[in-house]
């Protein structure tokens, strides 16, 4: 089955400010994903973009994420599932507040 990375872009807000229903939906997602016959391969929540360090072409080291924007990548997870339609269905389990979720197929290794 193909694998997809789900890159979650959101406004960075303190964890306690995340609405309860959003939090609940996120916590309930893994079980629903498994129930669909898909498999979560790995998940990586990230520290805020302010903790990031970027190495620029030419060797400069800069403070902050590579792409400075209102929304930044907040984490990603990898799921193995049937096809893009199922991947989209999985993405829809996660409420989007301000940003978006990029679904990127992975190379088969």
């Amino acid at each position: 089955m193909p694998q997809y990375a789900f890159l979650i872009y959101e406004n960075e807000i303190p964890i306690e400010d995340i609405p309860a229903d959003v939090m609940a939906a996120n916590l309930a997602a893994p079980e629903k994903i498994e129930a669909m016959g898909a498999r979560i391969v790995s998940e990586y929540p990230m520290q805020p973009g302010s903790t990031a360090t970027t190495l620029q072409k030419g060797g400069a080291i800069t403070d902050g994420p590579f792409i400075e924007g209102k929304e930044t990548i907040a984490g990603f997870f990898v799921v193995e599932c049937r096809d893009l339609d199922q991947a989209i269905a999985i993405g829809k389990l996660l409420p989007i507040m301000d940003g978006g979720i990029e679904i990127r197929p992975l190379h088969e290794m």
Partner: peptide, 9 residues
Amino acid sequence: AASISFRVP
């Protein structure tokens, strides 16, 4: 690459 399926939704 993205496994867009060949099936009726």
